[in-house]
Design a protein around this nucleic acid. Sequence first.
RNA 1: GUCCCCGUAGCUCAGUGGACAGAGCAACCGCCUUCUAAGCGGUAGGUCGAAGGUUCGAACCCUUCCGGGGACGCCA
Length: 567
Amino acid sequence: MIPQAVPDPTLRSATIKAIERALAAATANGSLGAPADGSAAGITIEVSRPANADHGDLATNLAMKLARPLRRAPLEIAQSIAAELSREVAADPAATPIASVAVAPPGFINLHLADASLDGVIARILAEPASWGRVAAPKSRRINVEFVSANPTGPLTIGNARGAFVGDVLCRILEAGGHTVAREYYFNDSGAQIGKLGATVFALRTGAPVPEDGYHGEYTQALADELPEPVLASAQAPGADPAEVVGAWAAGAVRTGIEASLAHLGVHFDLWKSEGSLHTEGWVERAVERLRAGGYVFEQDGATWFRSTAFGDDKDRVILRSNGEPTYFASDIGYVTEKFSRGFEELIYIWGADHHGTVARVRNAAEAMGYDKEAVRMLLIAWVRFIVDGVEVSMSKRAGTFITLDQLLDEVGVDAARWFFASRGPTSGIDFDIELAKKQSSENPVYYVQYAHARIASILRRAAEAGLEPAASVGEAIGGSAEALLARQVARLPEVVEDAAALEESQGITAFATELATAFHAFYRDAKVVDPAEPERSRSRLALVSAAKITLANALALLGISAPESM
RNA sequence: GUCCCCGUAGCUCAGUGGACAGAGCAACCGCCUUCUAAGCGGUAGGUCGAAGGUUCGAACCCUUCCGGGGACGCCA
């Protein structure tokens, strides 16, 4: 995805600029006094949305933060800065997004946005809807995001669902936030587990008993039934290892199924990387060489070790076992090397909480290999406890006791499932009660948001029938009480995206989408949009609800959720 | 034993330094001759796990404790 060339400044960033100008002016004219030691220099201007709408559209706590370095009462500082802000509003209203300024104890500077700046945002949304909500990154990066990465020993389970959704939504948010993102799926299709899968499928096909340590899910029978004759024949050829031959085929078949499941989720990967290729292409060797060059490799007990203790780890880690086989860790560091060789500036791993122990050692190895440790980041997703009939279901592909991702989506639906995971922080543990989810799926907040979108679509259809087209912007009517409230919510999207991209979290998007839907439903109640008797007002309001519709659709798109035209 | 995450309304969860702590669901009361009632308005519900500390200001930062989950392999 190509980052947008010319990003919109948000109303928030324009406001920060205005405050910077006011601060500079107040400093220059001496009304602030001067910090004796320059300690005020490092203070950044923060602008937030007051919880109480009576306090204005935006507020800054700048005066409180300056109180100590300037050795002055915060209220006085606030008044000095507010005076400069007001001066600019009076002198050149077009240069500032602010309409009025107020100071409140203990030192808040409260700001009201100008109608004209809000109407400018509406006009911009209607003129270029596709890019609305895409912002420039403070520092644009090429980011590699690796997620799901379940080995092809069986279908994806609901245990994989959270990682898939969280990873996909994070990618969408990072792209909207001005970064370039590659989605990767890492898998091992040649290990011992694949051999066990192959032995299981081979046994089922040939009528032999399934090995004790084989796989016992129902899907293995389907694989056995589908096993092509030629593959079976080559597995039975003299000297062949049936587990390996059938396993290779089964892994491919399972992977095809996994890709189909992910496509159903709306999750797509740019690259599927096999662990085996890291060895055959020499990346593990290169990684070991980089470590050796730094003096962080040693031999002991016939094995090759990474001196992880040099980076604060409690013990050193084996790279190559005494039998010559590489460990999983060897593949990990090979992959780090391979990823960086492709020019990524940041690697993000979406891992289950059970990978906690490997985080530090992979990052340490990255540092030891000469990469920036801070550019290797792991997002650990907390476990989801799936409850069926009041009892937790543990997911085990080996035992065959699991619920597949496809089953979950048949029950709950993609949009509802996406919303469920997007609206919760990835580190918080979740209880997912299947029965409750089914029962509540029609009451899921996602439908509340989608309904607002569908309602607007309906209004636009009615308007078209009446021969009414949206105006290019709201115009004077934006000052109306109903319009003002909705326009303010609509205008927030880029700020919400900025925050979500910086925090690498999706909850802000779902919260915003809900608030915007609420604002629209209230508008719908208070303001009749399509009214042939009032064509000018209708066109003006059509412009506003059109902008709201675009904003809802773009916010939902960030979550991978559909925006229906009717419900 | 060491380390990580979590503990906020009956339930599921937002909120991580600011102005009276929020949403959805569940409960209760109202609103469809009106652009989609999957909606709107209202009522009720909280010692933000506990105790100290830092701060002008703490659900948020620090310490300790309690409770829940997870991690500590020459497994993958």
